[in-house]
Amino acid sequence: MAEKLVEVFTSGCPICERTVKQVKDLTQYSEHEVVVYDLNKKCDTNECEDKAKEYGVQSIPAVAIDGKLADCCSNNGVNFDTLEAEILGK
């Protein structure tokens, strides 16, 4: 399986933390790179806000895989079954 860049956009809420944990659990035995952006804390640069805008993030939490908003997050919320399939390639 090819390495993926998995970016998680959060606001520090309990649902966001569950999403971060799910992503880390799914990627722990892979070569995937996981980056977490807490939009409440901001970034030193505008990188997190710019990426959220570029990817079309409309609600938090959201996950982007290889520069594209994941299908699991396109309907206001995270569908964890879809997220697992997208990360693991199932």
Rank of each mutant, 00 (worst) to 15 (best):
M1G: 05
A2T: 08
E3P: 04
E3L: 12
K4A: 05
L5F: 00
L5W: 00
V6H: 11
V6I: 15
V6C: 06
F9M: 02
T10M: 05
T10L: 04
T10S: 15
T10D: 03
T10I: 14
T10Y: 07
T10R: 07
S11T: 14
S11Y: 09
G12M: 10
C13S: 15
C13D: 15
C13K: 14
C13F: 11
P14Q: 03
P14K: 01
I15G: 12
I15K: 15
I15C: 13
E17F: 06
R18P: 04
R18Y: 09
T19P: 08
T19L: 05
T19Y: 01
V20F: 10
K21Q: 12
K21C: 02
K21R: 12
K24N: 11
D25Y: 02
D25I: 01
T27M: 06
Q28S: 14
Q28F: 03
Q28Y: 02
Q28A: 10
Y29D: 15
S30V: 08
E31Q: 13
H32M: 06
H32T: 06
H32P: 01
E33G: 02
E33K: 15
V34C: 04
V34T: 04
V35E: 09
V35K: 09
V35Q: 05
V36M: 04
Y37T: 08
Y37D: 12
D38C: 02
D38K: 02
D38H: 03
L39C: 02
L39R: 01
N40S: 08
K41T: 12
K42D: 06
C43N: 07
C43V: 00
C43D: 13
D44A: 04
D44H: 08
T45H: 07
T45L: 09
N46M: 08
E47L: 09
C48S: 11
E49W: 07
E49Q: 09
E49L: 11
E49T: 05
D50C: 00
D50T: 13
D50N: 13
K51H: 05
A52W: 04
A52N: 04
K53Y: 12
E54P: 10
E54F: 11
Y55N: 08
Y55E: 09
G56Y: 08
V57E: 03
V57I: 05
V57A: 03
V57W: 05
Q58S: 13
P61V: 03
P61L: 05
A62S: 14
V63K: 03
V63I: 07
A64F: 12
A64D: 05
A64T: 04
I65S: 08
I65M: 10
D66W: 07
D66R: 12
D66C: 14
D66Q: 13
D66Y: 15
G67D: 13
G67N: 15
K68H: 15
D71I: 08
C72L: 09
C72V: 03
N75I: 05
N75G: 07
N76C: 06
N76H: 12
N76R: 14
V78K: 00
F80T: 08
F80S: 08
F80Q: 07
D81K: 11
D81G: 13
D81E: 14
D81R: 11
T82P: 01
L83D: 10
E84S: 11
E84T: 04
E84I: 01
E84V: 00
A85R: 15
A85Y: 06
A85S: 14
E86Y: 07
E86I: 02
E86L: 13
E86F: 06
I87Y: 00
I87D: 04
I87E: 00
G89N: 06
G89I: 09
G89L: 01
G89P: 05
K90R: 14
K90M: 09
